[in-house]
């Protein structure tokens, strides 16, 4: 019988701590699929954020470091400058990237650091209990916008990609989502393209992914996906925001590498 689906090799067998319906686990898997397909797990050094994805290194079977909240792109800069032939990416939430780490992301992009940034926009601070993020939609209730987010008091949802578009150092910027299989596939292509941008030494690229946080949106996983479709992507339009790259072939495609035998008999790394 032909195997249709399996866990990516570069994912460990650890059970994630994510809530059901959370986008983080899904996005982890997409990243790992891309890494497997490009066959670069041995070259990756990832930078995990402070946020719900802080334990990403338990789920990824490639080298990963922690970074202080928001300093993720600065840490990635240090790594990439020392290891220019490795593949370095940051994985950041919207608090990490669009609030506390705004300076770091803008300047990493402006220097044209040859790194990939995976920006998970779920519109709230998941890890700390669902507070308002800079990305929170107007009218949205959160733990710290209990009378909803109002433009005159709490400002507007921030569109980081559109802000970064004017930076010559950023060569590829795309916004995707994970609310439908079609969008998941597009997210995968975008991450693939971002990694290929880096492999081709073309410069800074970033993929913003609209992701559900059912827990702090106060919805079921299904309702969360519907909310993305009906509300969130109206404010954060999907698609390429900037692409100055010459058309690239999407490098290796699925199935071009031999699957290794077993995956889950490898016990998850114990990290005390």
């Amino acid at each position: 019988m032909k195997k249709m689906f399996e866990k990516p090799r570069s994912m460990t067998c650890a059970r994630t701590h994510y809530c059901s319906g959370c986008g983080h686990g899904l996005i982890h898997r997409i990243i790992c699929e891309v890494i497997d397909e490009l066959d670069i797990a041995g070259r990756v050094v990832a930078v995990a954020p402070v946020g719900c994805a802080v334990l990403a290194y338990d789920y990824w079977d490639f080298d990963t470091t922690e970074a202080a909240h928001g300093r993720t792109p600065a840490v990635a800069t240090g790594i990439k400058r020392v290891l220019p032939d490795n593949v370095v990416f940051t994985y950041q939430g919207d608090g990490d990237l669009a609030a506390i780490g705004t300076a770091e992301i803008i300047h990493a992009a402006n220097r044209g650091e040859n790194i990939s940034v995976i920006f998970v926009n779920n519109g709230v601070y998941g890890m700390t209990g669902g507070q308002m993020a800079p990305t929170t939609l107007l009218g949205q209730t959160t733990a710290t916008s209990q009378f909803t987010r109002r433009a005159d008091k709490e400002g507007f949802p921030i569109k980081i990609l559109e802000m970064m578009k004017v930076l010559p150092g950023a060569v590829y910027l795309e916004r995707t989502s994970v609310h439908s299989p079609k969008e998941v596939a597009k997210t995968k292509s975008a991450i693939m393209k971002s990694f290929n941008t880096q492999l081709g030494k073309k410069g800074f690229s970033m993929v913003e992914i609209i992701s559900p946080c059912p827990t702090y949106w106060g919805m079921t996983p299904l309702e969360s996906m519907e909310r993305i479709e009906k509300e969130v992507i109206k404010v954060y339009p999907l698609g390429s925001v900037k692409d100055t790259l010459p058309q690239m072939s999407s490098s290796r495609t699925r199935g071009s590498i031999k699957p290794r035998n077993t995956i889950c008999d490898r016990s998850p790394r114990s990290r005390g």
């Binding site: 970074a67 202080a68 240090g78 400058r81």
Partner: peptide, 8 residues
């Protein structure tokens, strides 16, 4: 933090 990354 760049120094942190370089040290990593």
């Amino acid at each position: 933090n760049m120094v942190f990354g370089a040290s990593v």
